[in-house]
Design a protein around this nucleic acid. Structure first.
Lengths: 299, 299
DNA sequence: CACTGTTATCGGATTATCCGATAATACCGA
DNA sequence: TCGGTATTATCGGATAATCCGATAACAGTG
């Protein structure tokens, strides 16, 4: 994909004709046609329906159009980098749970350090209760945690990312060839239950909607242990894509399958004390996450 | 600017060395060097400080990096267009004030119509009081208006765009050559006061912080009239960039200058009844505006 | 003072892009 | 029925962008 192709695509979508788009862009019609053809083949989707009178956007095309608008406007914005004099120095105290700290934050902390080298990020790893208490008492400015389990009315939250939960099994397991696995089938297998953070609570929450219960063979707080057990065929589990890796530590492969019934997503987001006045540092963090996950998920 | 250049730039920023970036990208070092050189010249800014040990991001570079992350992740997102099955049909009732309807909405309505051809957008042009009342009574789903003047606690709002207010004058006026104009100087000139919507109220609000008052020569509800008067040198005014156009209807030129003292920005955004449950159609509208102005402005 | 690690620059090969002409298609009115 | 007039699609050759490898320039370091 290409910015050029994207521009030609937008012009065609807006004029509904390749030839009009070409003249609006002051280039030849064949270039536009080729660009759109290439774009379609690179995306593996038909973007327009070719009619006698021009080009009609398909649903896929409309979806791309929305993205294209966003991309091109961001490019525009990037092109005049005027110094927004946000104060990038100072300290911010961030709390996070174990899983978030290990599987979500490292990547973003790395980026944040590069983007704001003078911002002093103070990290605290704690369990949910301590995090919520710390936010309320003002020991932390903001927290990154599972937003779906927040019930404290004194906190405000914003979901950034939803990660689907899937069935994990060994690649040799018969489930690995299936497209769907029912809860009944899962209940017939040995189950590895992760007990770190709120994983066990959450699992029990959606299992309670079922008639049967998982046959728990092992409870562990180690995600690596879960991976090894599953990879070795000693049981299956249900965990979110965020902590999924295709390989166990010993190098054996793990497969994933969609569960048949609805399993809630794992929602990760920011939380802060309700009504808290954002410091410039909090604004930076908030703006960063909003920008990278500018998500249609409200909360 | 180019996606290729952007990718090379990000790789260089992350590895802090052209040569490491090149090997990470599996291309030659000279290509990366050239791409960054071209990117810098096209932006007119230095992105890195060249040191003996590699490349250090400048402030401008860090700013671009933030944009680049956003752009590339949007590209990623665009590349796998999976059908989000949001219901794009149905009706939404949007209220807007005169200025917003004339200068802000047309562009976006055009885009929304293309993105969601089955969404029936019902528009209502009203003054602020009627809009607020209509939101509360449920006659409108959402409104687009000046968010800075919202005081009704029954409404929730989100600012999308801040448009700076500047001094407008004829291009031949001595002010046009200046970089700053004090309020005292403005008070010595004839002033054209726009009275449409809340323009007059807002103007009076920031004038009241000054010792002097504007010498109002004309009050009008027509922005075109303001433009003509100003272009003909019959007075000056202060209005937001949103309604600024460089030419009057007769083709005479209008210049803008920054006011010396702080003039509040004109903030445009969405408003809805506090606690309202978003319909799928409202989600669409909200998501669209959030996406196109994914703004660091909270409210 | 040579050695090692940087980035910068140059010429030539390769690849992408563009254009104009032409083909293919389907509607539309005589 | 049959040209006429809109479309978009395709092809070959010209042009421009991009890439690579070699080499230069530079600054620490032992």
């Amino acid at each position: 994909m290409n910015l050029r192709q994207l521009k030609y695509f937008v012009a065609t979508a807006e004029t509904a004709q390749v030839s009009r788009a070409a003249s609006a862009l002051s280039i030849s019609q064949s270039s536009v046609t080729t660009a759109i053809r290439d774009l379609e083949s690179s995306l593996g989707a038909t973007l327009f329906l070719r009619t006698r009178s021009g080009m009609d956007l398909t649903d896929a095309g409309r979806e791309l159009l929305a993205s294209a608008y966003a991309i091109l406007s961001k490019i525009d914005e990037a092109q005049n980098l005027r110094h927004r004099d946000t104060d990038a120095s100072g300290k911010i105290r961030i709390a996070a749970s174990y899983t978030v700290m290990g599987y979500f934050l490292p990547y973003h902390l790395d980026r944040l350090r590069r983007l704001h080298p003078n911002l002093d990020i103070e990290l605290h790893e704690l369990n949910r209760d301590s995090i919520e208490e710390g936010l309320l008492s003002g020991r932390f400015d903001v927290a990154v945690l599972l937003t779906s389990n927040i019930t404290n009315p004194g906190l405000e939250s914003e979901t950034l990312l939803r990660s689907a939960r899937r069935v994990w099994c060994a690649s040799a397991h018969p489930f690995a060839q299936r497209r769907n696995i029912t809860f009944d089938e899962i209940a017939d297998e040995d189950y590895i239950l992760l007990t770190v953070d709120e994983a066990a609570n959450t699992a029990m929450k959606y299992w309670s909607a079922q008639t049967r219960e998982p046959r728990v063979r092992l409870r562990t707080t180690s995600i690596e242990a879960v991976r090894s057990m599953v990879a070795n065929g000693q049981g299956i589990t249900i965990l979110s894509d965020m902590v999924y890796r295709p390989w166990s530590l010993e190098g054996k492969r793990i497969a994933t399958v969609m569960p048949g019934a609805q399993v809630p997503t794992m929602d990760i987001g920011l939380a802060w004390r309700r009504g808290a006045v954002f410091t410039p540092q909090m604004e930076l963090i908030h703006a960063y996450f909003r920008q990278t996950f500018n998500s249609p998920y409200a909360s």
